[in-house]
Design a protein around this nucleic acid. Structure first.
Lengths: 351, 351
DNA sequence: GTTAGCACTCATCTCTCGTGAGTGCTAACT
DNA sequence: AGTTAGCACTCACGAGAGATGAGTGCTAAC
């Protein structure tokens, strides 16, 4: 059976209507609302064909039709045209990049917030990660007589604090001296690849502060491990409650529960190595293999951050999602933050 | 009408049963389940009296009775006996304090997590705050050519990072010099009380780094402001969905929405100056004046952290809450973390 | 003061039936 | 051959009618 122009028009009508109303659409509704110049009976015949093609389904015998996952797939792959951003949307994006987002954490958080606000779906942003993270610099800072904080700065500009307890904290000058020694060490070797013995040999050099040195090494290692572990920011998780698909508390609960599982988040939003940065990827309904999320779709894109370092921005909402709006917004936002990041990198290199 | 022993027994039976089942309790149920040695008819008469006293209410004519806010109030004030902790509970608390919680942030987060896990209610912990926060120490750390991070350590041991952008970041030695100068300055005067002009005069001294100095001052001020603003950790917010009281999505939604409003959180969980640390406070149902939370109760306590510095731990759940368990757990947890904090303070002073 | 008995209330469940949206099929029309 | 009007059929949904049962209040007797 051939998918002619008229069938496509009808499929589009069904998708548009269903996205807006969440109600199955009947042939008469299409005949009345969309002036296709054909009667409801003809539309019925065409709908029967569309169902045979697996593009739409009937929830029950005497109901209208709703798009199937396959129908949405056809739509997003071939029929959907990108939408212009509205004034409000453009304005919100401008405000986002104009904020002084000099810390990657804030940039991620704000991005998630803005995107979830504009789409009314749930947004997840992952911190940019690559395979090899290097520690650029550490600095010890006094806290009190019994503890110092070790500030670790990585080459992807993440800054982490680790409090270290010690019997008697060295004074500031001493801390600066130790920090400097450690920074020298960091330049010479990759602390992550050192085994216990070599590490012991090195901390030996620190003489009186052997224990402290070991703790610092530990803090540095932990930072790298934490960094190589993916970090998520989610925003608008509760928005899901606004959709009739989740008006059943059990469903909402299982959505939230799925969201608390990191493994699931990594599968859905962890960076996809094969994905070219900027390219939008769409996962529709059951295409993700998670029972709890079979009525959800994910729209996501990687953004580039430094060499071989990617983060992901993703939007998750009901399968009945406004794909065209979501894709347009995600496109725009990825472009924006790529520019912000690029600008800051150029500054680094040019300055 | 006098509240005799028998009436009290009946009230307790109603509360216990209702907390467990969330169903209105009838006279026959009480007669069968609790061997009070009286018939259902007598219980009916007593229940009629209890209703007249405003301690229980009838949802509708032919239903059993449920405790009123006033009934719960009487219960928690006079009838409730503290419950022994179970083995699992004791174990979880021990694990909490045994973790190396050397950073106040982690301690708060873990506390919230453990308490929400044990109670299955929502837990909110506020960072310890006092009126006057002093900045003890700052340290500049290089990030890249165009930015440095300013690490601020306050006297309540909170550590905050602020990224500062500058045209050309000074090298490490220079940063250490500037940090040292600033730390001197911090000892001499309270940076928060300085007006624009005096601040200008001081940053003048920094010569070439006037701009940077101003940014540092800004970062320090921001830290103090952020610190004086209350910070919350919530855990188990989704637990509310497990209660039939919130099986209506609308209700759940409005609970979540209320929870996103900081003002509300401050009212409910912000430290209560009049509350003695360790003393448990209970707010039942409509006693908080928030329409969205009129079916919720709050159990909270302040814990002491340093001089005149208090944080709050609070549990929020349905009015039909297991008060006795919650109070016992909260008591134990407040004691535990007070001990942890005390130990670390003693170390400070003794070491 | 306590209790058995009884009439009464009312939420809840089930069943039925009417309604209406929607379909599929067929026959007639273009 | 494609299109359309017509019609029988399906089925979710809502309203209404009982039936059920948990629970109450009242009264009279113990």
């Amino acid at each position: 059976m051939i998918l002619n122009d008229r069938k496509i028009k009808i499929l589009e009508a069904i998708i548009n209507d269903y996205v807006a109303t969440a109600e199955p659409i009947g042939s008469r509704t299409i005949a009345k609302k969309y002036n296709l110049g054909i009667s409801s009976a003809t539309i019925r015949n065409e709908m029967s064909d569309l169902e045979e093609l697996g593009l739409i389904v009937q929830p029950h015998t005497s109901a209208g039709r709703v798009p199937s996952d396959k129908g949405y797939r056809l739509y997003v792959d071939h029929l959907m045209h990108s939408r212009e951003l509205t004034g409000a949307e453009t304005k919100a994006l401008k405000e986002l990049v104009n904020q002084n987002l000099n810390h990657i954490d804030y940039l991620m958080k704000q991005t998630a917030k803005v995107l979830s606000m504009l789409t009314r779906y749930t947004t997840v942003v992952t911190e940019p990660k690559g395979r090899e993270i290097k520690v650029k610099h550490i600095q010890l800072v006094p806290v009190d007589e019994r503890s110092v904080v070790c500030v670790v700065v990585t080459d992807n500009k993440v800054i982490k604090n680790h409090v270290i307890s010690c019997r008697l904290a060295p004074d500031m000058d001493e801390l600066n001296r130790i920090s400097a020694m450690f920074n020298m060490l960091l330049k010479q070797c990759d602390i992550m690849t050192l085994d216990e013995k070599s590490l012991d040999a090195i901390t030996e050099k620190f003489g009186g502060y052997k224990e402290l040195a070991a703790d610092i090494a530990e803090a540095v290692k932990r930072t790298v491990e934490e960094e190589e572990d993916v970090q998520f920011y989610a925003s608008g998780v509760n928005n899901i409650l606004d959709f009739p698909e989740f008006s059943d508390v059990g469903k909402a609960r299982s959505f939230f529960q799925a969201f608390e599982e990191k493994k699931m988040l990594i599968t859905l939003f962890g960076q996809n190595p094969s994905g070219t940065p900027g390219k939008i990827q769409i996962v529709i309904g059951g295409e993700n293999n998670m029972e709890e999320l079979k009525d959800c779709s994910i729209v996501r894109a990687n953004y580039k951050y430094g060499n071989n370092t990617y983060g992901t921005i993703g939007v998750i909402g009901p399968t009945r999602m406004n794909y065209s709006q979501t894709v347009s917004l995600l496109n725009a936002i990825v472009k924006s933050i790529n520019n912000v990041i690029k600008a800051s990198e150029d500054e680094d290199n040019g300055g």
